[in-house]
Nucleic acid binder design. Structure first.
Lengths: 187, 187
DNA sequence: CCAATAGTGGGACTAACGTTCAGGTATCTT
DNA sequence: AAGATACCTGAACGTTAGTCCCACTATTGG
């Protein structure tokens, strides 16, 4: 049978994704610098050689992990837009502000990981399509008649996030809302 | 004499700054990941032990380098504002757009280094004052009656830069000017 | 049923790493 | 002049890294 769920290949791919997830956890905790075959293997609870079997080099592991991370981010943005739409016109700012506050609060580690992806993509062209994915999702979903205003909006989101990461106490939802609102409809 | 320029201490501090400059070059070329005592020593043309003599640990070297980098960035921003002012009201956008285009073009490596500083500051609170320095300079020099608009401006600059770093062909000055202009005087 | 194959895991090898140390030299202080 | 001081550096230590090897197991396709 080809569709056997517990076969060799299926278990292999399962472990592969487990390794990727463990890598993401390591990046969230210690940054890309903390990623080694051994730390990842320990985090995933597998022998060291398992990571080298599924990913030829450490670089492959990093690239695979960050592409995965970018995919998650893009789908999250997708659902955010969807939610903002269903909440009616003009309520988009609240949804976005809430998401930003989460990114800087409970999901801070994840946000840092995403910006390490950005920086790695700056050096590795192969990662750029993945890093740009959430930008593409936004661009394709949101109607933008004013090209310049939309570009400011995209840049503003990134700036708010990265500056929030180096704040001693990151801004909360209520602090972000007027800024996001301004970004969405400047007068 | 205390003012001897060729004394023991003076040469020591000179080498110290040479090591810091070499470290910055390594970061620009290979990123923070490429910084080791040996690569830095080779880049500076000094023996390996020299880097450990002047900086107790690798971390100290990194922190010293990034603080130095941040200082340069802040003074550059200072002079940019000064220039924009002398060019008369309303010409600020051109000056800023030119600076951004340079940061994404000839000085791309330096810009990447600066964002590695950001990300490191997100994990090391001791680096945050240094990372925020150029923001503080802007805040103190530019009159801003509208708090929200100014915040959008700061975030926009960062967003434009970091998104420019993952573009396959970074935007040029003429492409950036309308966006910067929009950031400065939204209607 | 059986050869081929994908996955597993313990061990080990080499290279590179951060860091230490001890001996040496030039400079400063008194 | 002479001891103290700051700087310099070759050699080496112990550790950890990436990666490879090989014997083993369980699944697969014919």
């Amino acid at each position: 049978m080809k569709r056997q769920v517990d076969g060799r290949k299926a278990r292999g791919e399962k472990r592969r994704t487990e390794i990727i997830e463990a890598t993401l956890r390591v990046i969230e905790r210690d940054g890309v610098a903390g990623v080694t075959h051994r730390t990842v293997a320990a985090e995933a609870g597998v022998p060291t050689t398992s990571t080298t079997y599924h990913f030829a080099t450490l670089d492959d592991l990093l690239v695979a992990t960050l592409i995965d991370c970018a995919r998650d981010m893009a789908t999250e943005v997708y659902w955010m837009i969807d939610r903002a739409r269903s909440h009616g016109r003009g309520r988009g700012a609240e949804e976005i502000a809430k998401l930003l506050a989460e990114a800087l609060g409970p999901k801070r580690g994840r946000t840092m990981a995403e910006y390490e992806l950005y920086l790695l993509a700056a050096r590795k062209p192969e990662l750029r399509p993945a890093a740009r994915r959430w930008l593409d999702v936004l661009t394709s979903m949101v109607r933008h008649d004013d090209e310049v205003a939309f570009r400011v909006f995209l840049a503003g989101i990134d700036g708010l996030l990265i500056q929030g990461l180096i704040d001693d106490e990151p801004p909360g939802e209520e602090e972000l809302r007027p800024v996001v609102d301004y970004l969405l409809n400047p007068r």
